[in-house]
Design a protein around this nucleic acid. Structure first.
Length: 515
RNA sequence: GGGCGCGUAGCUCAAUUGGCAGAGCAACUGACUCUUAAUCAGUAGGUUGAAGGUUCGAUUCCUUCCGCGCUCACCA
């Protein structure tokens, strides 16, 4: 029998003994006067004398994270809300039965206590317990109290244990909640309404990615988990909801990395009668406000460096300017704007770029715009630590954006980069149904060339545009990545409560079945 | 998918050139009415990720597999 099974059985036995003392083994509720953080916040300023003079009675509950027994008295620490409060249990004060109960408690158990506050000889604020109420048993042993849980795999697989042992994990997810609140508040303040659109879609549109496929039994049809809500939100533009947003999950059937989880949270918002530059400004304010709401300042740590989200620190440049600006010295003289003009010139540019150390995969079959985008990512992305807006994207990789009037191969699209990551993407929405159909058809050609991430043709979307969509600007913001940046988390798994892992093979860690 | 690395008690980690698999915490028994990584005395806990190979002998060397991490590719 494995050790933890022995402990499990032993603790079940203790639970029976606890019940024999007249305690409910799984009671329903506990009335408390203070949470642990409230006790600490309210009475940390009071001296021992003050507490003695005017007795403060409290009832509080928490999980036992440390316990010390000394004959006929003992101390323990209760953890709740990420904070710990000491309790002092004396046989004289809790009585024979109360002390029997105390001796049956284990690390990890939940209890409620009532008593009065005092300060110990060393000055620690402590509850002098008069009554213990048993609340729930921890049947499996918690990790070691000093080193805690560090095994990365276990931390993700058993996030509940991770959160008990590592208070900073709790902090990250509290900040994540504040981040999402902030995004909602800003958009609500601008007159946006929040909507929910389908996650099960018969055509996975709105982005270039491989989808998850699922099946509906009654209709007997295959469906896709959505890769983006974009096309549905724009249908709402047609329908007359002039400002909409959605914060929810997207699913992309692609690699897992420190920046990619197969399901991730995206904010998308659309505003009628707006163009790229308007939503660009709004997005910048949205993010600056989120940084302030989450951390109380526009400055956040990012590894060894610091990111400043204040408006004055944002940079803006076009994609072509960024390639020129970050052109590596080893690749010779910087290109000029004219060098991006034709397929042949771009091919030459790649050749020069690859003559330096870097390497951009180049396929002469693909449109020049695609190559330019690859060039940008290789040359510039790693330099973009401070918030930077890159705008004017090639039309070839932007089937849903509106063209620049004077340069039809380029579109009014931008992306926001920070911490070497793309965190946002927006554009002037293409609302000409015939142009949209042509773009979809180009994507179909890409698909036939073997690009299985090329956009699918969505006939109903073209039909919706044919009813007339007002001019509009739209933006997507990667909430997980923004959360990484605002909490200094190097991997996306640290900001997703239950990141996708391969399912567990053995069941050794599972609790034994009921006997 | 490629490359590199890791996997030893519930947890955190040791183990000399290939030579008896160990410690701390957690657990159990006992002592202790102001401790706080409580202390003291004792006890128990292992198919060293799995399978195979080399060897008198494998945690250690080799092969394959499984899992995880880092990284590259992929990811508009």
């Amino acid at each position: 029998m494995a050790l933890d099974e022995k402990i499990y059985d032993l603790r079940r036995e203790k639970l029976k003994q606890i019940a024999a003392l007249g305690q409910e083994p799984y009671p329903r509720r506990y009335e408390f006067t203070h949470t642990v953080p409230q006790v600490l916040a309210s009475f940390s300023g009071q001296s021992g004398e003050e507490l003695e003079k005017e007795r403060v009675n409290v009832r509080a509950a928490g999980r036992i994270m440390a316990i010390r027994l000394m004959g006929k008295a003992g101390f323990a620490h209760l953890q709740q809300g990420g904070e710990r409060l000491q309790i002092y249990v004396k046989k004289d004060a809790v009585g024979e039965k109360g002390f029997e109960l105390y001796k049956l408690l284990d690390l990890g158990d939940h209890i409620g206590v009532s008593g009065y506050l005092f300060r110990t000889r060393t000055g620690e604020l402590t509850i002098h317990v008069e009554e213990i109420t048993f609340l729930a048993k921890d049947l499996l042993p918690l990790p070691e109290k000093w080193h805690g849980l560090t095994d990365v795999e276990l931390r993700y697989r058993q996030r509940y244990v991770d959160m008990v042992m590592n208070p900073e994990v709790r902090e990250v997810f509290l900040k994540r909640s504040k981040l999402v609140q902030s995004l909602r508040r800003t958009l609500d303040g601008h007159g946006y309404i929040e909507v929910e659109t389908p996650m099960l879609q018969s055509i996975a549109g709105g982005a270039a990615a491989r989808p998850f496929i699922t099946h509906h039994n009654t209709l007997d049809i295959d469906l896709y988990m959505r890769i983006a809500p974009e096309l549905y939100l724009k249908r709402l533009m047609v329908g007359g909801l002039d400002r909409v947003y959605e914060i929810n999950r997207n699913f992309r059937n692609e690699g897992i990395s420190t920046r990619h989880n197969p399901e991730f949270t995206m904010l998308e918002f659309y505003q009628a009668y707006a163009d790229m530059s308007l939503v660009m400004d709004l997005t910048q304010r949205l993010i600056e406000q989120a940084a302030t709401d989450v951390n109380g300042t526009t400055k956040t740590k990012w590894g060894e460096t610091e990111i400043d989200w204040a408006a004055s620190n944002w940079k803006r440049m076009t994609m072509r300017e960024a390639i020129i600006h970050y052109w590596p010295e080893k690749a010779g003289a910087r290109p000029e704007m004219a060098d991006f003009a034709t397929h042949d010139l771009v091919a030459k540019l790649v050749k020069r770029f690859n003559s330096g150390h870097s390497h951009v995969a180049y396929n002469p079959q693909e449109p020049a715009g695609k190559t330019i985008a690859a060039l940008f990512e290789t040359a510039a992305e790693e330099h973009l630590t401070q918030p930077t807006i890159i705008y004017e994207f090639p039309a070839a990789i932007s089937p849903l954006s509106k063209n620049k009037p004077e340069e039809p191969d380029w579109v009014e699209r931008f992306e926001i980069y920070a911490g070497q990551m793309e965190i946002s993407n927006g554009f002037s929405e293409l609302n000409d149904p015939e142009e949209q159909r042509r773009r979809f058809e180009q994507q179909l050609q890409e698909r036939e060339r073997g690009d299985d991430e090329a956009h699918q043709l969505d006939e109903d979307y073209v039909r919706a545009l044919s009813y007339g969509m007002p001019p509009a600007g739209g933006v997507g913001v990667g909430v997980d990545r923004l959360c990484m940046l605002l909490t200094n988390s190097p991997t996306i798994r640290d900001v997703i409560l239950f990141p996708l892992l391969r399912p567990e093979q053995n069941t050794q860690d599972a609790p034994p079945a009921e006997k």
